[in-house]
Design a binder for these strands. Structure first.
Lengths: 225, 225
DNA sequence: AATTTATAACCTGTCGACAGCCGACATAAT
DNA sequence: ATTATGTCGGCTGTCGACAGGTTATAAATT
């Protein structure tokens, strides 16, 4: 039967589950940016000991979603404009290199997978499905990295991913964002399909810089109110 | 008086000290690649409890110097040729982006700092000081990242740094390596000095690819014996 | 001798406890 | 009233202990 698991999985340790839990709590704004996080408090809330909580927190610090201040207190990551710029510079460095590799190495099958993602994106836009759009956006970028065939590159991008998530959510705000993003993706896709690393790389960098500009504008706009 | 410290420093926690200790042990080959590492064992050896050891190990896993296998056993990182290639692709992506930024943003003072590093390198070569050469090489690359002014970019490169260390040591083996490396660095330096991001980026990528080719050759050579 | 079974040794994930440090609040001194 | 002193509570870093799952070792069976 379909539901059957063909292989038992070892119990997922608390600290891993917790890492996921905390991550979504942060993403969903349950913990506010700048808010202090306390090991013992979370441990008590979930009726587990501090050890797994500690490990989960350490992992999230590595992901950048939590930050330690001078007094080794732990607070939730607070995006700043400077930081957005830095993160996007990193993404451009990593992803434009990745897409160049992908354009060289991608298989026919992967090309059609990519195309499928673009179609999904189109559907999401038509239905006004914002969450779906964010997901498709992430999926497109992620799949390109996978096609590069470099697992370390993928890991580096994934590490940035937790932070990028914030901005992806912001990024779909603004006039005609869905269409603009899709257009950018299509151009990147075409360059990959033509196996033109140089162009793919440039298109991706342009596209990402455009995202960045949009995000900054929205943040500044919000700040004014 | 001069010796007076104007500010007390908080004690460095065990887990941080230990992280450093373990790192150098791995670098120095005290723990062999592929060798298994056991929390309790290290804890006992150093007469501390498992908690700080655990945290140090987790940190090193993040750096890539330790790896968990399927049974969540912990073993020392084992460089492979595929891996070297992947890591160097990542370095090229990150560092060539960084050097482009540096060429745009570098200050006069930083330019002369960089030049000083090149002079040190020259001295190290003349004196046949291999360790000094490795250090200078690392210093040069690192300082370029700093000049880019992007702290996240720096962190990403630093993360790779722990692994890169292995290969830097290998890289100075081979005929005329010191001179070749220095020549590459000088070219990069000149491009930065001219504030030519495009050229700096290209020179760095070429230089790094050359390092990679050399490293691979040496590794393969060793394998044959 | 080869294979199975039964123990024993080991390791990781988790727990509860304690010490030292820091800040908050309260109380005392000028 | 303001500054100084003292106490309390909270939080992090560290400790030792235990449970459950694995692996290795030794005994038993064929």
């Amino acid at each position: 039967m379909e539901l059957e698991q063909n292989q038992l999985q070892k119990a997922v340790p608390y600290y891993e589950q917790l890492q996921q839990t905390l991550k979504t709590r942060i993403w969903n704004g349950l913990y506010k940016p700048g808010e202090r996080i306390i090991e013992a408090q979370i441990a008590k809330e979930l009726s587990i000991s501090r050890s797994p909580v500690r490990e989960a927190i350490r992992a999230l610090i590595n992901e950048g979603l939590l930050v330690t201040d001078e007094k080794s207190q732990i607070i939730v990551y607070e995006p700043s404009i400077l930081d957005v710029k830095e993160i996007y510079e990193c993404r451009i460095a990593l992803e434009s290199a990745a897409v160049a590799l992908s354009a060289e190495r991608i298989t026919e099958e992967q090309v059609s997978d990519l195309e499928k993602i673009l179609q999904e994106t189109e559907t999401a836009i038509k239905q006004g499905d914002k969450e779906g759009l964010v997901a498709c956006n992430a999926k497109f970028h992620q799949y390109i990295i996978i096609c590069s065939g470099n697992s370390r590159l993928k890991k580096l991008v994934d590490d940035l991913q937790s932070l990028t998530h914030f901005f992806r959510v912001i990024n779909i705000e603004g006039p005609n964002r869905g269409e603009t993003i899709l257009k950018g993706h299509k151009e990147i896709f075409e360059a990959i399909k033509k196996r033109d690393p140089e162009q793919a790389s440039r298109k991706l960098a342009d596209h990402t810089r455009e995202d960045l500009a949009n995000i900054i504008q929205i943040i500044e706009q919000k700040g004014e109110r």
